[in-house]
Every structure is written in C-alpha cells, then in structure tokens.
Amino acid sequence: NIFRILGDLSHLASIVILLRTVQKTRQVDGISLKTQLLYVLVFCTRYLDLLTFRWKSVYNTLMKMVFIGASVRVIQLIQECKTRNAVAYKDMMARDTFQIKYLVGPCAILALVFNYKFTVLELCWSFSLWLESVAILPQLFMLSRSGKAGTLTTHYIFALGLYRALYIPNWIWRYYTEGRLEKLSVFTGLLQTALYSDFFYIYYKKVIKGAGFELP
C-alpha cells in the first residue's frame, strides 16, 4: 500500500541524506555515532532472515541489503572523519554521552519476554524492534543538550520521523484490508513515534525559538 511504500522511501531518504551529506561535506557535526551504531545493530538483527534465503520479494531483499550496507557505510564515513578532522570528531564524541547499555540491556530483556517464538531468529527480530524504537535517544539527548541542530540533523530526523508516522496508517490499512494486526511492531512503532514527537517538541522549543539557528 501507498503508506508503506512512502514510509520505506522516506526511511531510505533519511539514510541517503545522511550518507550523501557526510560524504560531500566530511562533516559529522551534530550526528550521534551511538545512534548510528545502534541502527547497524537494529538492521543486522532484524534482517537475519536474509541468511535463511526464504526471501519475500526482490524489493524486500534489496531494501534490506541497502539498509544494512548504508548503515555500515555511515559508520565508516564517521570513522574517516576521525583522521581527517580530529578536533570535530573529538567534539562530537564529547557530546555523544548517552549510555547505550541502558538501551541494549532492557531491549534484550523485552525481547525475551515479548516474542512470537523462542528461536534465535524471532528473539533477534523482537530485539531489533525494541531497539529501533529507542535507537534515536542518544541523538535526541545530544540535541536537547546543545539546543542546536544542523540542517543535516534536522532533515535526517525529519525523514526518519516521517517514515515512522507513515507506518501507522499502513497498519490501519492492513488491519482493514488483510485483517492483519502485528502487535509487537505496532506497539514498538507507536513508542518510536512518541519519541519522535518529543524531538519535534524540542525542535520547536529550543531550535525555532532559540537564537542562532537558521531555518533550512
């Protein structure tokens, strides 16, 4: 359905925006390395089914590969900045202070409690859903402390938020047309959307109302 495709495309757009900008400008200002690392973990644990070769469609398989590849590439590019611009890299690391063990640990426990089947694949899948729902927190934490957001960060988080928002009408659509209600995805998806709403709140309060920021 249209919501799902648009959702996937804005998800893809968010990663492309990030990738292209970092590649072109060699700037990582305002980007949380921890959030990016969490996304690599999210994609790798969610798309483990690629290894079973029970592929659903060309679209599904290609997108999964692109998401894993692009998220790894983002990390590579950030690491390259380390040698190119050590000062900027150090500055980013100094501000990227969120303790991710407080996210990974609880998500692992939640995956053990809430899953469809007690198999490695299903547990990893559930873990990835929980982790995705909170993976943006180090980024939001960084943003809320600095009160400044670069154009890159703003566009990136906006596209990500749009992807999450579009998945909600997709679930409603699928409920009515297919009778499908996948509770785990819906719950973690709503949780994630709530966190993004918080971003837009911070964005409004600190960035738009704050000084020293030019709207893109």
Partner: peptide, 10 residues
Amino acid sequence: TSTQLEHDEL
C-alpha cells in the same frame, strides 16, 4: 495466544 505472522515489513 498470538499466532505468528510473517515479518514482511522493513
């Protein structure tokens, strides 16, 4: 009990 659904979303 919840029946297992195919994970066909990204």
